Simulated scan of single mutants.
Amino acid sequence: MEEKSVVRRKSFDFAVRVVKLCQFVSKNHHEFVLTRQLLKSGTSIGANVRESNNAESGADFIHKFSIAQKECDETLYWLELLKATDYLTENEYGSMYEDCEELMKIIRSIILTRKANLKNDKLKKG
């Protein structure tokens, strides 16, 4: 349970940072298309983590976290694109990218652990 609360907190904190970053880029660079994409994927990570709390089964839980993982990867893409097009400085990019990669690692770990637990449960039931 502690692992889930960590990912829940970190994904929410990351979403707040994404919102603030998108506000900053939109205001200072008048860029709205890429930031809109970043906003959608970056906030979706935490939304899917939150949805996993109400999963109907172990498979549904894994599915919600798999969506969060995909959104995390998409967020990395938008951050890379914003950096490559000079909308983000190296510091802005690096900090956000590191946090997103950390989230990705946590999410992947949770998925692998849950899959292993489901497999073990099936073996025990035989």
Results as ranks from 00 to 15, higher is better:
R36Q: 13
F61L: 13
A47E: 09
C72N: 15
W78D: 00
D99Q: 09
Q23A: 05
S66K: 13
L38R: 00
N48P: 13
C100L: 11
S109I: 02
I111T: 04
T35I: 03
L38N: 00
N28H: 09
C22D: 00
N120E: 15
G58V: 03
I106F: 10
K27V: 04
L81Q: 12
R114V: 02
L112Y: 11
K40A: 08
E56K: 07
G94V: 01
S41D: 09
Q69E: 11
S52G: 08
K70W: 04
S41H: 03
G94Y: 02
N54G: 15
T35W: 01
K119M: 07
C100G: 13
F61A: 05
T75P: 04
K119L: 05
L21C: 05
C22N: 00
E56Y: 06
S57G: 13
D60A: 02
Y87R: 06
Y93H: 15
L79R: 00
K119F: 10
D86K: 08
L79E: 03
E102G: 05
G94H: 08
E98G: 06
E31C: 07
D99L: 04
F61P: 01
L88Y: 07
E80Q: 11
C100W: 04
E74W: 11
E56N: 12
K115F: 08
R114I: 00
S26I: 03
E51H: 05
Q69Y: 06
R108Y: 15
C100R: 02
E101Q: 12
I106M: 15
Q69T: 02
G94L: 02
E102D: 12
K20M: 07
D60F: 01
S26F: 02
N117A: 10
N117H: 10
M96G: 04
N54I: 05
Y77P: 03
I107C: 03
H30C: 07
R114H: 10
K105D: 12
T35A: 01
S26E: 15
T113H: 14
R108P: 02
R50V: 12
T113A: 13
A55T: 09
M96R: 01
N54D: 14
T85F: 02
E74H: 09
I111N: 05
Q37V: 00
T35Q: 01
E98R: 10
L112H: 10
E51L: 03
D60K: 04
E92I: 02
E31Q: 14
E92T: 06
M96F: 06
I45N: 01
C100D: 13
Y97F: 07
E31W: 09
E71R: 08
E101I: 11
